[in-house]
C-alpha cells in the first residue's frame, strides 16, 4: 500500500469534519459565497477542498462516482481507505467528483423523485479558480444578487427548471469551495 493512501486523512476527524462541514453548509446555504475548507491532503488530481468534502460527507453508505482523471488508482485507494465509500457509475451515485468536462453530461445523474427529491446526486466540480464574478445568482440564500465564476450558465438554468428535483453542486478549487443548490437562478 502506498504511503499516500494512508496519509492525508483527518488527523482529528470529529473536529476537522465539524469545521469542514460548516464550510460546506455555509456555502450551500449562501450560494455565491466562497468558503475556506481544509483538513484533507488527497492525492492528485483532487484538490484539498474536494478531498475534505469527500471525507466529511462520504462513507460506506454513499456510492461515489470518480469522473475522468479523478478515477485513478491513487484516488481510488485513498478514498477506499479513508471513507470506505463504494465506487459506482454516474447513474447510481450520491456524490460525483471531477472536472466540469469529466462530469458532463449531467443528464445521467439521479435527480431524485417527486416523493423523494432529496435522493439526488451532489456533484463536486473541480474548478481552475473560483471568483465572485461572472454569472449572476439569485434565489434562496442570496439577499439580492451574487456573482460566481461558473463553468456554464445554461446547464444550471436547466437544472433549476427541474425543481424540486435536480442536482446540487459544490464547486472546489484549491482550499476553497462554493456551492450551487438546485434553487439558484443563474443568468
Amino acid at each position: 500500500m502506498q504511503a499516500e493512501t494512508l496519509s492525508g486523512g483527518f488527523a482529528n476527524p470529529a473536529v476537522q469534519s465539524a469545521h469542514a462541514f460548516r464550510s460546506v453548509m455555509e456555502a450551500m446555504a449562501r450560494p455565491g459565497t466562497l468558503q475556506d475548507i481544509a483538513g484533507a491532503e488527497p492525492p492528485a488530481p483532487l484538490s484539498k477542498a474536494a478531498g475534505s468534502v469527500l471525507l466529511t460527507l462520504c462513507d460506506t453508505d454513499t456510492p461515489v462516482y470518480l469522473a475522468g482523471d479523478a478515477d485513478c488508482d491513487a484516488v481510488r485507494a485513498w478514498l477506499a481507505f479513508h471513507t470506505g465509500a463504494p465506487l459506482t457509475g454516474p447513474s447510481h451515485c450520491m456524490f460525483a467528483v471531477g472536472t466540469w468536462e469529466a462530469l458532463n453530461p449531467l443528464s445521467v445523474y439521479p435527480v431524485g423523485t417527486s416523493e423523494y427529491p432529496d435522493r439526488s446526486a451532489t456533484l463536486i466540480v473541480e474548478c481552475e479558480a473560483l471568483t465572485q464574478s461572472g454569472a449572476t445568482l439569485s434565489g434562496p440564500g442570496i439577499k439580492t444578487n451574487a456573482a460566481l465564476s461558473l463553468p456554464s450558465v445554461q446547464a444550471f438554468q436547466q437544472n433549476r427548471a427541474l425543481f424540486p428535483l435536480g442536482l446540487d453542486f459544490i464547486l472546489t478549487s484549491g482550499s476553497q469551495l462554493a456551492a450551487l443548490p438546485r434553487t439558484t437562478e443563474v443568468s
Partner: peptide, 20 residues
C-alpha cells in the same frame, strides 16, 4: 461520526430543497 455524516447530508439536501 457516521451518524453525523448522515445528518449532515440530510441538512445539505434540506437547504437545497427549502421546506421539504
Amino acid at each position: 461520526e457516521q451518524t453525523k455524516r448522515m445528518i449532515r447530508r440530510a441538512i445539505l439536501k434540506g437547504l437545497a430543497i427549502p421546506g421539504y
